[in-house]
C-alpha cells in the first residue's frame, strides 16, 4: 500500500476517534455530573442509561442555525473554531496507543506536543476578538494570561521525566517505563504540578475562568451556536483526552502491559479514561478561583515547584 493511502487511513481513524470520544465524553460528563449531584442524568434517549443521547446531541448541533453576530469580524470569527480544533487533532500524531500504534514516532515528540498545544490559544483569542462581544473579549484576555502562565510549569514538569528517560520521543518514554517501572515513583511532584497545570490548560474547574459561566456567560464562545459551538466543545473534550493520555504516557507507564497489542491499547485507554474521570469529578466538586489567585498559584507556587523538581531530579541522577 502506498504511503499516502496509509496516511489518509490514519487520519480518518483519528478523526473518527475524535468524534466518538467527544460524544462519549459529553455523555459521560453529564452522567457523572448527574450521579454527583444526586440526580440521574440523561436517561430518555436510548437504553441503557440514555446512551443515544450523544447521537441526539450530535444531530441537534448539526441541524441548528449557525448565527453570526452582525458586528463580528467575519473571517476571524469564521476560522476561530477551526484554529482551535486543528492543533488538538494534530496532537494525536505522537500519542502512543500501543507498541506500534502511533501516528509517527518522532524523536522530538514532546516538543512537538508543546508547540502544537500552544496554538490552541490562538483559536481562543480569535474567537474572543472576532465575536466583537465584551464578554468574549474578557474571556479571551483571561485565556491569554492563563494559558501562557500555566504552559510554563506544564512543560517544566515534563522535563524531570525527560531527564530520567533521556528521550523526547513519547514512544521512548513508554519503553523506558516498560523496563524500569512507572515514572510516578520518582516524579510524583512533577505529576502534581503537571496535573494542576493541565486543569488550567484545559480550562476546567477550578480554573475555568475563561468560560466562567456565572461571570462571563460563556466566555470566548458566547456568540457561537450550532456546529461551530460544537467544534469548540469537541476540541475541548478531545483536549481532555489528549492531556490525560499524555499524563498516562509520562507518568503511568503508557501502554505497558503483558497482554499483547490489543491488551496494550485497552490498558492505555482504561488508564486515560480513569484520569478523564478524575478531571470530571473535580469539575463538579469545587468552586472556581479568581483571576489573581490563579496567577498567584501559577507563578508563585507551581513554577518554583517545577523548577525545584528539575533540580531534585538532577541530584538524584547525579547520585
Amino acid at each position: 500500500m502506498p504511503e499516502w493511502v496509509m496516511a489518509i487511513i490514519k487520519i480518518l481513524i483519528v478523526l473518527a476517534f475524535i468524534g466518538l470520544n467527544g460524544m462519549f465524553l459529553i455523555w459521560a460528563e453529564r452522567k457523572v455530573a448527574g450521579f454527583i449531584q444526586a440526580r440521574i442524568g440523561p436517561a430518555r434517549v436510548g437504553r441503557p442509561q440514555g446512551f443515544f443521547q450523544l447521537f441526539a446531541d450530535a444531530i441537534k448541533m448539526f441541524s441548528k442555525e449557525d448565527v453570526r453576530p452582525a458586528a463580528a469580524d467575519k473571517w476571524v470569527w469564521w476560522f476561530a473554531p477551526v484554529v482551535f480544533f486543528t492543533p488538538v487533532a494534530m496532537a494525536f500524531l505522537v500519542l502512543p496507543f500501543g507498541p506500534n500504534v502511533i501516528g509517527l514516532d518522532m524523536n522530538i515528540g514532546l516538543i512537538y506536543l508543546a508547540a502544537v498545544a500552544s496554538f490552541a490559544l490562538l483559536g481562543v483569542f480569535m474567537a474572543g476578538w472576532g465575536s466583537n462581544n465584551k464578554y468574549s473579549l474578557l474571556g479571551a484576555m483571561r485565556a491569554g494570561a492563563q494559558m501562557i502562565s500555566y504552559e510554563i510549569p506544564l512543560i517544566l514538569a515534563t522535563i524531570g521525566v525527560i531527564m530520567i528517560t533521556g528521550t523526547l520521543s513519547t514512544q521512548g518514554i513508554v519503553e523506558y517505563q516498560v523496563a524500569h517501572g512507572w515514572n510516578i515513583k520518582t516524579q510524583f511532584l512533577a505529576f502534581v504540578v503537571f496535573f494542576i497545570a493541565m486543569l488550567a490548560e484545559l480550562n476546567r474547574t477550578p480554573f475555568d475562568l475563561v468560560i466562567a459561566e456565572s461571570e462571563l456567560t460563556s466566555g470566548f464562545f458566547t456568540e457561537y451556536s450550532g456546529i461551530r459551538w460544537g467544534m469548540f466543545m469537541f476540541a475541548e473534550y478531545t483536549n481532555i483526552f489528549v492531556m490525560s493520555a499524555l499524563a498516562v504516557t509520562l507518568f503511568f507507564g503508557g501502554w505497558a502491559s503483558p497482554f499483547g497489542l490489543v491488551g496494550s491499547v485497552l490498558i492505555f485507554l482504561i488508564k486515560t479514561y480513569a484520569i478523564v474521570f478524575l478531571i470530571i469529578w473535580i469539575r463538579w466538586s469545587v468552586p472556581r478561583v479568581r483571576i489573581d489567585q490563579l496567577m498567584t498559584l501559577g507563578w508563585k507556587f507551581l513554577l518554583p515547584l517545577s523548577l525545584f523538581n528539575i533540580v531534585f531530579t538532577g541530584l538524584i541522577l547525579l547520585i
Partner: peptide, 16 residues
C-alpha cells in the same frame, strides 16, 4: 451563592 462561585453541585443539593 455556590453557583455564583462556579460550584454547580451545591446548588442542586440546596434545591433538593
Amino acid at each position: 451563592f455556590a453557583m455564583d462561585m462556579g460550584a454547580f453541585t451545591p446548588f442542586l443539593y440546596g434545591f433538593r
